[in-house]
Design a protein around this nucleic acid. Sequence first.
DNA 1: GGCGCATTTCCTGCTT
DNA 2: TAAGCAGGAAATGCGC
Length: 372
Amino acid sequence: MAATCEISNVFSNYFSTMYSSEDPTLASVPAAATFGADDLVLALGSPQMPLEGPEKASWSGEQPQLWSKAQVLDWISYQVEKHKYDASTIDLSRCDMDGAALCRCAPEELRLVFGPLGDQLYAQLWDLTSSFPDELSWIMELLEKDSMTLQEPLGDQGPFDQGSPFAQEMLEDCRQPSPFYPGSFSAGAPSPGSSDVSTAGTGASQSSPTSDSGGSDVDLDAPDSKPFSGDGFPDYKKGDLKHGKRKRGRPRKLSKESRGCLEGTKSKHAPRGTHLWEFIRDILINPELNEGLMKWENRQEGVFKFLRSEAVAQLWGQKKKNSSMTYEKLSRAMRYYYKREILERVDGRRLVYKFGKNSSGWQEEEVVGRRN
DNA sequence: GGCGCATTTCCTGCTT
DNA sequence: TAAGCAGGAAATGCGC
């Protein structure tokens, strides 16, 4: 990682020289700026922490499809830094693309270019793109205003979670084709999340401009948390230590004050969060969302297998605004479904589960019915 | 405020 | 040895 540090220093110096004088963020970077390979190199390692302080990164708050090359670089550099990834291993010659091109990248391509970071980018991009359905743009604007008023360090996404397939369900009543995703949301057609799913990025845990403050469902966690401090988790995650160990259970999320503030912006009757098994089911029944995350082993029987367990966990974590989600935790939640017969055990097979009699919506007939 | 549900987190032990 | 599985225990968030 020494190489990363060195590169980062060089990048940082260069970037600060380029953009420091007027606007510390890249918002001032001309969208039409042309970047060569050298510029790409320089861009990496100059992360723009989007939620630190009142300033935001250039890409934050803007649809990934509309990002300029500079914004793409900005975002990549942020991700590289966030994940402490060794930038020297990235094929920089392939980073010269605008947001539209980035969103067309298949996960395999991202992996090819960014290595292990590709998965992170994929999920992250998915989350970002699905955060901007046009139908909700007015809500986003509203929430953004509110969150800006309430608390600067919040991300752009606000308390609404529109990432992942579930967001689509939440938007069921107001869905319309998006200009960027013609025909999206309809059965079989790419959804906002999905078209990018096939094109975009993977899960990287939290962060992002999406305000993933690491464990805050409502995202207003924050005045006293540091959305991007180190691993991006609020301080409590490190502070709740008892004799060197963390306390059990879910870390505390919101202060009462922030929750109270939030009530002004969030529907009192917000739908209860989608359940994990529904999340899993929806990925499985939407091939365009799946992208190698999971596969049916026996569709008739409801038997499925995790192919990229950690990536799925990351996506689940993104949906729940929990950047520390892992497959281990996800699988624990899955095992609780055995008792309720939502899932059935599949003995002797790793990463394989089976839908139980108390689950629904995964059978082909049901899927077809839902789509019609 | 209490309750119940649905996780989330940590942990230990076992299996593959 | 690592990864995954199993399940207990304790904790939180949220709707009612």
